[in-house]
Design a protein around this nucleic acid. Sequence first.
DNA 1: CTTGGTGCAAATCGTTTGCATTAGC
DNA 2: GCTAATGCAAACGATTTGCACCAAG
Lengths: 152, 152
Amino acid sequence: MKNKANEQLSEFLAGQGLKSTRQRNRILSVFVSAGRHLSAEELTLLVKKTDAGIGYATVYRTMKLLSEAGLAHERRFEDGVTRFEYNASEGHHDHLICTRCGRIIEFENEQIEALQQSVAKKNRFLVQSHKLELYGLCSNCRGKRKSTPDVR
Amino acid sequence: MKNKANEQLSEFLAGQGLKSTRQRNRILSVFVSAGRHLSAEELTLLVKKTDAGIGYATVYRTMKLLSEAGLAHERRFEDGVTRFEYNASEGHHDHLICTRCGRIIEFENEQIEALQQSVAKKNRFLVQSHKLELYGLCSNCRGKRKSTPDVR
DNA sequence: CTTGGTGCAAATCGTTTGCATTAGC
DNA sequence: GCTAATGCAAACGATTTGCACCAAG
């Protein structure tokens, strides 16, 4: 059933009068099977392993398309690089990001979401989306001595 | 007392064996009096009004310095542009960002912070910093009809 | 066969850096 | 005077775009 996502894509493309191409399907497959949080560069490199001709431009264009199709979500953490995440549609979640090893942990917390709403209400603000990121040290890294400090 | 910040800067510079220059003081003054959340470009434009010779490079270099001196904080919202905020040192706060007019509202919420800690603890994660941004419509914008939709 | 898609390279945007010149200390 | 700071322009890294060619419908 590796094609569930690809079917979803085909459906989306057909609906928009767009074309289903070898590249788009390849990119989506690689993206889906790779796990998550891939930068365009990482994704391009992976894709090139199977299909060397596919270039950055196509990957970027395809990822934008997948975002519109609801198959991918764009995330931009503090390093300024956009990363793509698969299937973030099923329930919003936030992130713990390890500043030492780069590990990304996802979490959901309804209480926090509720409090956000109440803050918004106080400010007569209508929330469309939000972003919560906790930066710090993950369980693996917090024990370690600072052999190579991240603080430059 | 416009010079409180400038004094702080001089102190910092002296302590580091760095030099106090016309440009640095100018940039800081403009930055402080401008209110907050200025991008490098906005700041440079403002600075140039008084002192046309000052270039982007100096502004960037100076802002980095001010960050180190604790006089400015760097923020990067979703548009990928870095903005600088004055004096964010006095208590952490988060942001409501209007997607229509760009207005930025600051808020603090201890309950949310506490919940963040508990999430972190569950994941054996040590939080060093965090970022919470709520995107949506501010009170001015939410009433308006969608004459010019932001959704391209 | 018509329109959208691709690949490449050139362009763009925000930011950084090298270097010769200038100015604090 | 010595060293750090400036200004400019060129360099950068991530992303976007123009265009001639290619392929899906």
